[in-house]
Simulated scan of single mutants.
Amino acid sequence: MRILLVKTSSLGDVIHNLPVAADLARQIPGIEIDWCVEESFADIPRLSPAVRETIPVAVRRWRKRLFSGATWREIGALRRRLAGGGYDAVLDTQGLLKSALIATLAAGRRLGHDRNSAREPLAARFYDQTFAVPRELHAVERNRRLAAAAFGYAPPPALDYGIAAPAFAAAWLPETPLAVLLTATSRDDKLWPEADWIALGRALEKRGLSPILPAGNAVERERAARIAAAIPGAVAAPPLSIRELAGVLGRARLAVGVDTGLAHLAAALQVPTVALYTATEPALTGVAGAGFARNLGGAGRPPAVGEVLATADEALSG
Rank of each mutant, 00 (worst) to 15 (best):
A290Y: 01
A268I: 11
G291N: 01
A268R: 07
G291K: 04
G298Y: 13
V271Q: 08
A279K: 04
P282H: 10
Q270P: 00
R301L: 11
G297A: 10
A267G: 03
P302A: 10
V287E: 02
A304C: 00
Y277C: 01
A267I: 08
V287N: 04
A293M: 08
A288I: 14
V305M: 05
A268N: 02
G298C: 07
A267H: 07
E307T: 15
A288V: 13
A279Y: 03
A293H: 05
V287C: 04
A267Q: 06
P302L: 08
G306A: 15
T278V: 13
A267E: 06
G297M: 08
A283D: 15
A293V: 06
L269F: 12
E281Q: 14
P272E: 04
G300A: 09
G300K: 12
T278F: 02
P303N: 04
P302H: 11
L296M: 10
G289H: 08
P282D: 09
G286S: 12
V287Y: 05
A275R: 03
V305E: 07
P302M: 05
V305P: 04
L276R: 10
F292S: 02
Q270Y: 00
G300T: 10
T280F: 03
V274S: 01
Y277W: 15
E307P: 00
V274G: 04
A268W: 11
A304T: 13
P302Q: 06
G291V: 09
E307K: 06
V287T: 13
G286D: 05
N295W: 11
P272D: 05
G291I: 10
G306S: 15
F292E: 06
A290G: 14
P272V: 07
R294I: 11
